[in-house]
Each structure stands twice: as structure tokens, then as C-alpha cells.
Design a protein around this nucleic acid. Structure first.
Lengths: 209, 209
DNA sequence: GCAGAAATTATTCAAGCGTATAATAACGGC
DNA sequence: GCCGTTATTATACGCTTGAATAATTTCTGC
């Protein structure tokens, strides 16, 4: 009857590990399969430790949701360069790995299905959604202005809604059934569609690495 | 200590009631809150009865998923009239009640998050997705032909993927944050975007009721 | 109107859940 | 090198879960 090996993790690292383990379990077993015991196994600790870092399981799950939102938006909001490049990169980033994969979708869907149930998650969700759409709206506005147009705020809003919808939908298709599409096919379709919607070409620039 | 009132339901009705109650509970409490006891309360029976109609809870949930898919696709696949009208109606139906509402999304998301976990649900999902996209592809092909074009199969496929993505994404936005949009704003945006993507106008026809 | 089948309720069960608490191991200051 | 603090393990508790089974009510064919 020997006691389990006792390993003290570096400052703040354990908290992050627990959140990662939570997401792994939700993606793999669903929200109802992500039990404290499963999460603890995944994180390499015992279940009781969770309550040393979080007030409750629900609080840990909420923080895990924040991490998901961050991983889905932070890369997209960090695009740089001229307006056209930024818009193009925004599209590419959202429709390729690591943003677009089946794990991301499973996590996203698990939390979305809880938004109506848990008010805390609803707040986190709305903040993430609005900041994402606002970022896209700014991208579209900058792009149109750079092309010599003077779009009204209303036009920008409508374009942002439409493009946001298109991107969400293609992201979804790619995550759900990536095997049905050829390599980067969805990116090409998105580019062509956005060009048609804005009535402007999105010049193909040389690949950067 | 009197026994609970004993009411025998008409042929086959109880089964449907149980599936409806299951969906109500999933929408309201999430998958993990949809317990046999909650479902039984909602259906006005006792929990034990479930196993008289279904082999297990999982089987009932799978049948409930079939019902969700059906409710999301059956109306859209039944559009009638000339190709242009069918395409327009298809768009309208998918972006307005009862297909587009927050309950539908909660249900859809709950099941999608389980697709990676439960192989049975994965099969049901893929069938529904493909039949939906094929229906849309046929709609697009008919429309283009009616407009005097001779699109290749590849063109139809790409258009269907793009429009499907747009519709999914706008459906999603509408379900998640319907309060952020004006009445039928999403339908208008969808119409305008599809026109731009196909390079053809979708004539506004007189409202039918 | 009775007998057997089917539908429904009631009760029980083992397993797993999140939480609480107590015991123990590692660390940092002095 | 000891001591208080904190991170971690271990264990126990009350509750809920899906499932199994037994008891009861209704229906149907004759």
C-alpha cells in the first residue's frame, strides 16, 4: 500500500494543465463524460486537487471555455500587414489548422449547447462572438477604404455579418467533414465568395512562411 | 399512499411523446441534464417506462437525434415551384422560424458535440448532412440551368458548398444572437450574398401565405 | 366477464458523481 | 535543520444515475 508519487508542479502550471485536461476530456468524452476523475487522470493528478485550484468543477469548466474562445479568436485578431493581406490571412487562419479541426468543433459545440443552460457561459460566449465580429467588421472597412471606396457603417455591418456567416459555415463544414474536401478547397471557395460579395478581387499574394 | 394514475396512451403515441420530452430536456438542461427521470416527468410518465419502448437511454437519444435532423431538413427539401422560387424558399425556410431558433441550435450543438464520441450518432449525422447538401446542389443546378447557363458538375459543387456554408453560418448567427438582427435582416443578407456568389439576381416575388 | 397479454408504476441496486475533510509530502524562511 | 505553509493524496459521504425487476392496471379476444 504505497502512496501515490507526490510531484509538486511549477508555479501556475498545474492550473493550466487542469484546464487542458478538461478540454481533452470534453472533446473526447463529451461534457457528461468529462468527470473530475477522468480529468484528473488526464492531468496526472488525483481528483481532489481540482478543488485546490478551482472553487468548483463548474468554475473550471467556465475557465476552460474562456480558453477555447481565446484559441479560436486570438490568432485571427492578430493579423498584420496591409488591409488586403489582413483580410486574406484572416480567412486562411480561420479555415485551416489549428482553428479548423474536429476537436475544435466538438469543444465549441459542447459549450454552445450549454449556453442556454448556464448563464456564466452565455456571458463568455457573447463577449467572444461580438469581439470576433467587430474585428471582422474593422477588417472589411479598412479593406474597402484601401480600395478607394467610402462604405457606410451599415454597409460594413452587413458585409461583416455575411462574411462572418460564410466563414462560420465553412469552418463548420471543414471541421465536420474535412475528408469531403480537397486540400485548401474551402479557403479557395471562401476567397472567391468574399470577392463576389464585396465586388472586389482579393489579389493572390506570394506565400509567406 | 395511492398509486400514480394509470393512463394508457394511444397506439404509438407514447413513443413520440418520449422522444419529444427527450428533446425538450436536452434543449433545456443539456445532454447531461437530460436524465431518464427528468425526461419521464416531462412526458408525464415514470422513468421505468422508457425501457419498455427503447432498449436503452442511448437508443432513445439516437432516435431523438434522427427527429432533430428530420425537423431541420424535411421542410427545406420539400420546396416547390420553379427553380428560382425553390431556391429562394429554401433560403427563407432555413433562416426563419421554426428552423432558426435558439432551441434548434441547442439541440443541434448538443448532438454535434457527441458525434466524435458516439459512432451511432456520427452515422446519423453524416447521412443528414449529405442529403441536405445534395438537395441544395440540385437546387443550384436547376436554377442555373433555368437561367440559361450550362454549369459543370464541379461548379455546382463549389456553389453548393459555399451557399451551404453561408446558410449554416447565418442560421447559426440568427439562432445564437437573433436579438442583434432586425426582422428578416439575415434573409435579406443571404439573398444579396447568394446573388453575388452566383452572379445572378434572385427576383423578389410576391409573398405567398 | 374472464383470461392472458401488454402497458405502466413502483422499488431496488450497483456504480459513478461532485464535494468535503483529513492525512501526508514538499517547499521556503529563518 | 526545524517549522509553518501550501500542494497533493487519500478516503468518506450523500446523492443521482441508468438499469433491472416485481407489482399493478388496462386492454383485447373470446
Amino acid at each position: 500500500m504505497s502512496r501515490r508519487a507526490f510531484h509538486r508542479a511549477p508555479e501556475g502550471e498545474r492550473r493550466q494543465d487542469l484546464i487542458e485536461a478538461t478540454l481533452d476530456c470534453i472533446a473526447e468524452f463529451g461534457l457528461k463524460g468529462a468527470t473530475l476523475r477522468q480529468i484528473a487522470i488526464r492531468a496526472g493528478v488525483t481528483a481532489g486537487l481540482v478543488r485546490h485550484y478551482f472553487d468548483s468543477k463548474d468554475q473550471m469548466v467556465a475557465e476552460a471555455y474562456r480558453a477555447v474562445i481565446a484559441s479560436l479568436t486570438e490568432k485571427a485578431e492578430a493579423v498584420q500587414g496591409d488591409p488586403e493581406t489582413r483580410l486574406r490571412d484572416f480567412i486562411v487562419i480561420n479555415l485551416t489548422e489549428p482553428v479548423a479541426n474536429s476537436r475544435s468543433l466538438s469543444l465549441w459545440a459542447a459549450f454552445i449547447s450549454q449556453v442556454r443552460v448556464d448563464a456564466t457561459l452565455a456571458v463568455i460566449h457573447r463577449e467572444g462572438y461580438l469581439s470576433f465580429r467587430n474585428a471582422l467588421e474593422a477588417l472589411v472597412a479598412d479593406f474597402l477604404v484601401a480600395k478607394g471606396q467610402t462604405p457606410t457603417a451599415e454597409e460594413c455591418r452587413r458585409h461583416a455579418i455575411a462574411i462572418n456567416g460564410l466563414m462560420d459555415g465553412l469552418w463548420l463544414e471543414g471541421c465536420l467533414a474535412g475528408d469531403l474536401f480537397r486540400e485548401s478547397e474551402l479557403v479557395t471557395i471562401a476567397m472567391t465568395s468574399v470577392e463576389a460579395m464585396l465586388g472586389l478581387p482579393l489579389a493572390t499574394t506570394a506565400e509567406k512562411h
